[in-house]
């Protein structure tokens, strides 16, 4: 287990290095000039050149990357061009909001997905099954901003149950979390349904029936733990998918997370912030996958012993 953990941490380091390199090259290949953005439209060529020199943008790409990398290894993400603040300070201030939102989103998709997937599998072929499958199809196909607007209209504008936007209370997080989780919930419902149908046909479920166990015990104790094994690996991968959604959801609901930060930074070609946010989300994805790998053996003894 310790060896596995070390290997995964070494892997994670290489992945982050790769992400840093690729993002860096892509950002500098952009036609937009950060120095020009900072200086403003009316600035002279001289001002722009001096800003460029000040930021080190006139140096060769490799030298710039090396400077960035050495900083990074010392925990320095650089300073924002536009806000003149440490990138890490900016991210740290907004990270809790984003992490809360992601946790709530994962909670929504896992709970909705497993519940409805299980119901559909057990009542396979029934009206409920068809309803769940149709709903999950809609959930999977609806773009996130459409879902967001729909939820806002129904629950915030018409019914007035939840606030339109903002941050702070439990009521504030409900709609953003639903918006973020609804897509995943659709996927999970479908995955859990097919996994459950397969598991319910396994020999050990037949054994459980032959023992005279109640259907509830068969479903929850025997079938479900086996059926959610593949789902756990999915959750790790999902965290990556979520980052895209977070930008949209934070924008729509005015959620003060790193998605908004990234959005502003992209508009201003604020390269250090874009780099910082990209690395942070890469770290989140790596951590999510690692977590999934650590949880799997808790549920599956076959992985534990090998």
């Amino acid at each position: 287990m310790v060896i596995l953990l070390c290997k995964r941490l070494a892997q994670a380091f290489l992945i982050l290095l790769g992400v840093a390199a690729i993002t860096f090259v892509l950002l500098y290949a952009l036609p937009a000039d950060p120095a020009r953005m900072i200086a403003g439209r009316s600035a002279t060529a001289q001002t722009v050149a001096s800003i460029r020199h000040e930021l080190g943008l006139d140096q060769p790409l490799l030298v710039q990357f090396w400077t960035y990398l050495t900083g990074l290894l010392q925990g320095d993400l650089g300073r924002s061009y536009a806000q003149k603040t440490e990138v890490w300070t900016l991210i740290a201030a907004r990270l809790p909001a984003t992490l809360t939102l992601m946790a709530a989103g994962i909670f929504v998709e896992v709970v909705l997905g497993i519940t409805f997937g299980t119901i559909a599998a057990v009542r396979r072929g029934s009206f409920v099954d068809r309803l769940v499958m149709t709903a999950s199809f809609v959930g999977v196909s609806a773009p996130q901003f459409v879902a967001a607007l729909l939820l806002l209209y129904v629950f915030a504008v018409t019914l007035g149950w939840f606030p339109m936007s903002g941050y702070g209370s439990f009521a504030h997080i409900v709609l953003p979390a639903l918006t973020l989780g609804i897509l995943g919930a659709g996927w999970y419902a479908r995955m859990v349904r097919s996994a459950m149908i397969e598991v319910l046909n396994q020999d050990y479920v037949r054994t459980a029936r032959a023992k005279g166990l109640s259907s509830r015990r068969i479903i929850f104790r025997h079938a479900l733990p086996n059926a959610i094994l593949p789902i756990i690996a999915m959750i790790g991968i999902d965290i990556g998918q979520f980052m895209g959604g977070v930008v949209v959801v934070e924008a729509v609901y005015g959620w003060p997370g790193i998605g908004q930060l990234a959005w502003q930074a992209i508009q201003q070609v604020d390269i250090p912030i874009i780099m910082g946010v990209t690395l942070t989300s890469a770290l989140a994805i790596v951590a999510g996958n690692l977590l999934a790998d650590l949880i799997a053996p808790v549920i599956d003894p076959r992985i534990r012993t090998s």
Binding site: D203, Y204, T207, A208, N226, L229, P301, R302
Partner: peptide, 15 residues
Amino acid sequence: AMIFQEPMTSLNPVM
């Protein structure tokens, strides 16, 4: 009570 052909798959792997 009943026992089956496939002892390899007739027991729940996670219990």
